Structure formats: structure tokens, C-alpha cells
Amino acid sequence: MNDMLDRQAEDRIELAGHVKWFDPAKGFGFIVPDDGGSDILLHANVLRNFGQNSVADGARIRILAQRTDRGIQAAVVLSLEPPADAPAVPLADFAEFDPEYLASRPLEPARIKWFDKAKGFGFANIFGTDDDIFLHVEVLRSSGLAELQPGEAVALRVIQGKRGRMATEILPWDAVLRRAPQEDAQ
């Protein structure tokens, strides 16, 4: 069994590209590789192993891919970045804030209370509090995500806005661990 797993790991190649589309309801989507060639299948389980349930169309992605009987498939997500066309400051609510201040807000662990993509918003709760944190769909998109599920664990950067506490960034729950070394270096 271990020999088979070792061979599978050896057969994987690192690729970069962008997400063509991903549908959480269908449980899959496709990646367009930078080097050209056929689209690469991105299964929901591979994305979940990275700590996300969705990804925005156009997001930059680095993966380990493997050839299967059905073609090339993503086996491991190495990194994700929001789409290049995602607005840096998506809402007028953030216009009065210095972008450096917004980026310096601590990442706080939270759970999604509910999110309705059609309505364009939802709410989360920071762990240990009952306070609702407003989540706007444009913040979700600029964070590189497409949807959120009730109970999903995330990391949020939060400000006190004119209409209450609101997220300025929504990241996978383990973003604190992945970003800590980078932020410590700054």
C-alpha cells in the first residue's frame, strides 16, 4: 500500500493556472493551466483538504496534479490567490479607512451563521461571542471565495463600520497558520 502511495506522489507535477469555474453544489470545477493544454479537474474534496469549500472564478491556483483514467486532476492545492480583477477595497464602507489599517487588523476565528449569495450578504460569529459580523459578497469575492456554508470555519479581519461590525477579509480557517510567518517577517 505504501509503495502505491509513494508512486502516486512521485507521479504528481506542480502546475499553476486559474480557476475557470467551480460549483460547490456540483462538487467540482476546472482549472486552466498557465502552460496550456487540457483543463484540469478540481474536485471539492481536494479544495476542502486545503481548508476551503469554494473558490472564486478567476482565482490564481497552484496545485499538484496527477494523471488518471479520466485525465489530469488536481490532487493537492498548494496555494490560492483572489482573482486579479477583484477590487482591492470593494465597498464604499471601507473608503474612509486607510488600506494599511484594514490589512493590519488581526485575523479572528469565526463560524458562518448564514450566507445568501443571491442576497449578497450574510453573517458570522467570532468564536466565543454572539456578536454578528456582516459579510458582503464583494468582500467574499475579493478574498478569493465564491460561497460560504452555515457552520463553516473561517478567519476574518473585522472593523467597526457605520452599520456595525463587518468583515474586510474572509479567509479559510487555517489562514492564520499559513500567513503567520509572512506577517511576522513584516
Rank of each mutant, 00 (worst) to 15 (best):
M4E: 11
D6R: 15
A9C: 09
D11N: 07
D11Q: 13
I13L: 13
E14L: 13
A16H: 12
G17Q: 02
H18D: 15
H18W: 08
K20V: 03
P24E: 08
K26H: 09
G27Q: 01
G27L: 01
F30W: 05
F30M: 03
D35E: 12
D39A: 02
I40W: 03
V46C: 10
L47N: 00
N49Y: 11
F50W: 10
Q52L: 13
Q52T: 09
N53T: 11
D57T: 15
G58E: 07
G58W: 01
G58M: 06
R62S: 04
L64T: 09
R70V: 08
G71M: 05
Q73F: 03
A74N: 04
A74K: 04
A75S: 12
V77F: 04
V77N: 00
L78E: 10
S79C: 10
E81N: 12
E81D: 13
E81F: 08
P82H: 00
P83T: 01
A84F: 08
D85H: 07
A86M: 06
A88F: 13
V89Q: 09
V89A: 10
A92I: 04
D93A: 15
F94K: 00
F94W: 04
A95I: 14
A95D: 15
A95N: 11
E96N: 13
E96Q: 11
F97A: 01
D98V: 04
Y101H: 06
L102A: 01
A103S: 08
E108W: 14
P109Y: 01
P109W: 00
A110I: 00
A110N: 02
R111H: 14
R111I: 15
I112D: 03
W114T: 11
D116N: 08
K117S: 11
K119F: 07
G120P: 00
F123P: 06
A124M: 03
A124I: 00
N125V: 03
N125T: 04
L135T: 01
L135Y: 05
H136L: 06
H136K: 03
H136F: 04
V137D: 09
V137G: 02
E138V: 11
E147N: 14
E147D: 12
L148K: 01
G151T: 06
E152R: 06
E152H: 03
E152M: 07
A155N: 02
A155I: 07
L156H: 03
R157N: 06
I159D: 01
G161D: 05
R163P: 09
R165F: 12
R165K: 11
A167K: 00
A167S: 02
A167D: 01
T168M: 07
T168L: 13
E169R: 15
I170Q: 01
L171D: 03
D174T: 06
A175F: 04
A175I: 05
R178N: 03
R178A: 08
R179V: 02
A180K: 11
P181T: 13
D184A: 15
D184T: 12
